[in-house]
Each structure stands twice: as structure tokens, then as C-alpha cells.
Design a protein around this nucleic acid. Sequence first.
RNA 1: GCCCCCGUAGCUCAGCUGGACAGAGCACCGGACUUCUAAUCCGAUGGUCGCAGGUUCGAAUCCUGCCGGGGGCGCCA
Length: 569
Amino acid sequence: MLYPLSYEGGTGSRLRGPGSGTLPSPGRHPTSHGSRTMRDDLTSALRLALTELGVEPPAEIHLERPARREHGDFSSNVALAGAKRSGRPPRELAAELADRLNAAPPPHVRSVEVAGPGFVNFRLDDGWLFELLPTVLEAGADFGRSDLGGGRRVMVEFVSANPTGPVHAGHARGAVYGDSLARLLEFTGHDVEREFYVNDRGVQMQTFGASLAARRAGEEPPEDGYRGAYIDEWAALMPVDADPIVWGEAHALAEQRAVLARMHVEFDTWFSERAMVDTGAIETTLAALRERGVVYDEDGAVWLRSTEFGDDKDRVLVKSDGQYTYLLPDIAYHRDKFARGFDMIVNVWGADHHGYVPRMRAAVQALGHDPDDLQVVITQLVRLEQDGHEVKISKRAGNLITLEDLLDEVGVDAVRLTYLLQSVDTPQTVDLGLIVAQSNENPVFYVQMANARIRSIDRVAAERGIARRPLDQVDLSVLGHERELEMLRRLSVLPEVVELAARERAPHKVTTWVRELATAVHGFYHDCPILADGIDDDLRQARWWLAESAGVGLQVGLGLLGVDAPERM
RNA sequence: GCCCCCGUAGCUCAGCUGGACAGAGCACCGGACUUCUAAUCCGAUGGUCGCAGGUUCGAAUCCUGCCGGGGGCGCCA
């Protein structure tokens, strides 16, 4: 039995027993929205038309949203893809499809055209966009929510910084990414648990404790000790009779928890490595591996036969001096994760750990699990710059920018959005000077400004005594300005973006979308006045609700990113 | 030597599991505030998608090989 630690004092934390039962599935949420329906209508129409033409429809019919307006609202390449199978030239097949579809067009389809090498382009009337608006408004914060995950239980383990110091800027990317990914998975119908693995065992803890004790006694830390300024500060706070390791760990965890919470990152479980020593989980795991016949003794050490599971060499589990390597507790930890009944386990690791992926997968397999149930996302390193010069981070040397500092200087929203700006696959360069300066380099202001502008409408309307009619008494078909339509089109895509982002574990796709929506909002705001004198009230009402729906989109998108948007700026 | 990520406009990056003449922001140049916040909007400039092959009706996208940058390859964690 294992008893992972639960540290006191934080929100969102609960004790998590090993192998505990399955949690109830989360509630199902409505997934209906205009875009999805439109998409379904068009694909089934295409499928039917293909069948009528005697062409076997492909398993999945691709429908894309063309980048260019001239190519219609939706476009399909079925004729191109199916040309070979049907033995007809793509354009000919496309033309026949278009004829059939035009003869009995699906709802809102104004025309179906053949273009280019054989694309089938759908041109829609604006009505489908107007229908989207009430859907967005009714769904509110749930717009775009789906049950893609079907209630599957997923653990996302991330940050997992050593309890020997503060969380620093180097941890920030993984922290923000992991949290946003968790939000995405929750939003798409997964039952998510966020976990922080506490490496509170091994030599670094001894070194850490010795460094604190030395400083407390007014001496120099040991040769390989920690010597950052924080060690001095912490040592000064430490009671004389405290066990430096125990006190130090508790202090480190309390600080880590607080600063992460400040960045809107909170964990359900803080899982202690040391607890596994106490409960014998490590020994149990070793015994289990032995039983499976995947370990052997050699040169006085105990080895995992990981080469049998795709690793390029066997790995030592117990050193010849009897000490565990880091690997064995890690395996025990993952054994526990699986025992807790997760359908999927996601680890977020920094690029400097990518070399351990094969051996971890091998270990999981050696335990008899499907290695694909463990997914490791590697986040590439962030290069921090100050005015064009690289800022190096080293904890032992004490040269570090803490997350605390970063938040103080830059602010939570700017930090989060900055880290979520681009794919975690790409090495990122963050210039601290630029974000701090609150310049236009930082899109967070652009996005927040869009929200503030929308919010200002209600305020000003109240001041001027302009009343809003209920949505069902508003004729949305008076909309038609290109800015208005563009905003609706942008909004219509959110559910697809969310699904894709969740599937690809790519929250930055949400960021990109939010920025695009913000662009549409600014354009709309600029060209489509609502409260100004001389605006027809019917148009005013429709625009007002339209602005409201854009606000919903921003709310959803930013919520997934964990970024706040003030009412005014 | 082997493994992972990246190489797209002067800079920072998108580009949806191959699609129709390659996009955005910043920077630079020129315009727009008596009107709900000009931290905004509009326009112009700007690219051999690292290089070379291959697959395909079609390649920035997939495959192979190079080149360049970053990170890893322990009986360290």
C-alpha cells in the first residue's frame, strides 16, 4: 500500500490513496453548435451523392474551411481523393457531385461549385451564421465543450520540481502548458487529475538539508551544496531544533504551491517519492519485476532487461552499493499511477529528460502495461533573454530567476499567454525586457483589450440608458457587414479548434484562435458602432448580441489558457 | 557516433494529421480619433518555406540524405 503525501494548506488538494476506485464520470454537456451541424450536413450530403454516383465514400470525408473566401465556406477534396478509386477524372467526378448537390442542396447551401483541380466548394448563405449566435449565447462558458474523452480518466503529471528550492522560470513553461492541457482535456470530456511528483528522496535532499543546516549555523554550504540567496533566507527562517531536511522540504513545497497557485496552476495530488520508501512500494515493485522475469543480477547490481522492450541498453535498478537508482522509484511511481486506474497517463517533461522516455516506456511495458497508455510530452527549452542577452539559470550556483520574480515583474496573464503562444515542440525565446515593457510585442494586451472593449459597451449603454432587448426579440438577419460575418465565422470554428488542440495536446492552437478572434473583434468594434447616434435600433440590438457572443468566445478561449481578461483596461 | 526538437518575411512565430497564388504580430513607410477605450483600425513594403533527392494529380506539410542551431545519451537525479 502506498500513501502519497498530501500537504496541508493549499486549495484544490486532496489525499489520493493508491489504487483507489474509479471516479464517477463527469456530467455530459451539450455539444450542439452550428458549425458541427453544418459540417455533418455537408459530409452526409457528400456521402449520399457519392453513393448515388456509384462511388464508395471514404471512411472519413475531409471538409475544410478554405483560407480564401473565393473558395467558399466549406470545401471538400473527395473528388480528388476518390478519383483513382472511381476511375474518373477528378474534375468530372466533382462536377457530377456538384450537379447532384445543387439539385437538392442541404440547408443554407447557396451553391456548390467545382474549382481548381477538382475541389467541391460550398457557398453558404449567412443564415447558418445567424443560427450559430443563439447557440453560442445559450452555451455560454460551455460553448465548444465536448465529450470527446467520454469520461476517460487521465492523469497529467507536470512541473514536479525538486523540493530543494523555489520554482524558477525554467519550470514555467511546463507548468503553464500542463495546466492548460489539463483544462483542455477537462473541457473535452476527460476526467482529469493534476499531479505533482515530489522527488523528496536521494542525495539531493541530503545536500539540500546540509546546505540549510550550514547556513543556519553561519557556515559555508558543502562543496556540492546549494548556495542561492534563497538558502540564506530560508535558513534564517528555520527553527534551530528543526530537522533541516524535513523543514526544508515542507518550506519548499509550501512556497512552490503558493507561487504555482498564483499562476493559476493547482494540483489535485502531490505525490511523495519518499512515501514509497516508507510503504515498501519500491521493494514491491522490484519483486513484481523479478516475478515477471525482466530483471537480472550482474556485477553486484540489479538490472532491468529494458532492451527487451525497445530500450537501447539495459538499466540498473539497484546499484552495487545497494542504493536505488532514480529509475526504480520512478517505475514504482508509474506502477502506482496505473494501479490507480487511469485510462491514460500524460507526463510533461523538459527536453533535458527526453532520453528517459524509451526506458520509461520499456519499464511500463515490463510491468505488463500498454506503453501507449503512457504519453510523454517533451517541452523544448526556453531561452530567457534580457535585452538580447541570454540569462542563464542555475539553481546550485544560486543564479536563478524565480517564478515569483517573473510574476512580480510581468504579471500572471502575460506570463501564461507568452508561454502558450507557440508549440511546446519549438525551442522558445522569451525576452523578459519586452514582456515587462508591456509593448505591443505582447499579444496579451491586444486580446484583453478586445474583451475590455466589449465589456465597455454594457457600461456605456447603462450610462446612457439604452436598453437591450431579449435575444428572441432581435432580428439577427440584419447583420451582414463583413466585419460581423467574419467574427461569426471565427466563432464557428472554436469547437473544432478545441477538439484539435486537445487531441494534439496543443493548447497553443487555442492561443492562435483567441488572437484571431480578438482581431475580428477589433475590426468589428472599429467599423460597426452599436451605441452611436443614428444607429438603427434593430441593427444596434443585433450587433449588441453579436458582441456579447464574441465575449463568450474570448471567455472560453482565455479560460482554457488560464488567462484573465479584465472588464476595463 | 546514436537519439529528440527546431530551421517559413529584418525579428518572434502560425500554417488545421498533403491541397488551390505561403499567413499573423512586431519593426519600417503612408493614412484614420466631434462618434461604444487609437493599447485600435486601414494600406504599402517584405519570403529560393535551410539544401538536395523521392512519393503524389498536388509537398512548407510525408520519406531519405546532407547542412545549421538547441537538448540528451551514467551503477547522477
